[in-house]
């Protein structure tokens, strides 16, 4: 693990427990500019807890999370709000505001963080984000009128609205059919290239891992078990690594 302070995001010795359930035990990882890192682990291994600690939704028992030079647990709530506007977050459940149309969902972050924008400028950004996810025709739809894959794309478009430097993806392909899952994985890569975003992708979908990862961190028993490229890990003889990488594509 590099100890450099140049990482755009760095997690160091993070521990969190829920009662007697020790979810993360001195977990460490880092993310560099323009990099896609997949955190791979079994269901219930603490992957989602990790990114909720990174974004400040959960408070860790100990350890440090530094995002763009800011220690998340040490900054004020106003500073945290500002920091969060530089981070996009794609929820596993999409978490679209169900009483708002797609347009209103996408405008929501703009109305709070880009107050100086005119209505026409906001509209242009919304249309651009919808074009990025190839769903411009859904602008006046309600979330309940969208399919699972469309909801995921709209949620991704909303995460992109403030042009974040970091995007956190929580199980982006879970619950989707293989074709849509592949499209979402391709979209993640396209966004990385187009906007030079840095991403942490939480997943146990090996097709998504292979398609999106520049580097993989394997989370086992609350710790960073090992890390490396998909090609490197695919050749590992470690039983725990093989359990993931020997799965059929």
């Amino acid at each position: 693990m590099s100890g450099s302070s140049e990482h755009i995001l760095e997690v160091r010795d993070l521990s969190i427990s829920f009662g007697s359930n020790h979810v993360l035990r001195k977990f460490s990882m880092f993310l560099d500019e323009g990099e896609n890192v997949v955190v791979l682990g079994k269901s219930g291994s603490g992957k989602s807890v990790l990114i909720k600690c990174i974004i400040g939704l959960l408070e860790a028992d100990s350890g440090s999370v530094r995002v763009m030079g800011n220690e998340v647990s040490a900054i004020t709530s106003r500073e945290l709000d500002k920091l969060r506007s530089s981070i996009g977050f794609l929820f596993q459940s999409n978490a679209l505001y169900d009483s708002m149309t797609v347009r209103e969902n996408l405008e929501f972050p703009l109305r709070r963080h880009r107050r100086q924008l005119s209505k026409a400028e906001r509209e242009a950004l919304v249309i651009q984000a919808l074009n990025d996810v190839a769903l411009p025709h859904t602008i006046d739809y309600l979330p309940e009128e969208l399919s699972g894959g469309m909801k995921k794309r709209i949620a991704l478009a909303r995460a992109l609205m403030l042009k974040p430097r970091i995007i956190l993806y929580d199980e982006p392909t879970t619950g989707l059919d293989p074709i849509t899952a592949r499209e979402i994985s391709a979209l993640i890569v396209r966004i990385q290239k187009r906007y030079n975003t840095s991403s942490i992708i939480i997943s146990h979908d090996m097709n998504c891992v292979r398609a999106t990862a520049n580097r993989v961190v394997l989370l086992i028993d609350g710790k960073s078990y090992c890390e490396g490229s998909t090609a490197g890990l695919s050749e590992s003889n470690d039983e725990n690594v093989k359990a993931f990488f020997d799965l059929p594509q």
């Binding site: 974004i55 929820f91 459940s93 709070r112 963080h113």
Partner: peptide
Amino acid sequence: AELGSMKVTEQIDAMEVSGTN
């Protein structure tokens, strides 16, 4: 019911992570 539904579907968390109180 409305806020409860937003809570369990993570909409409140989504609002928080978008930097909105």
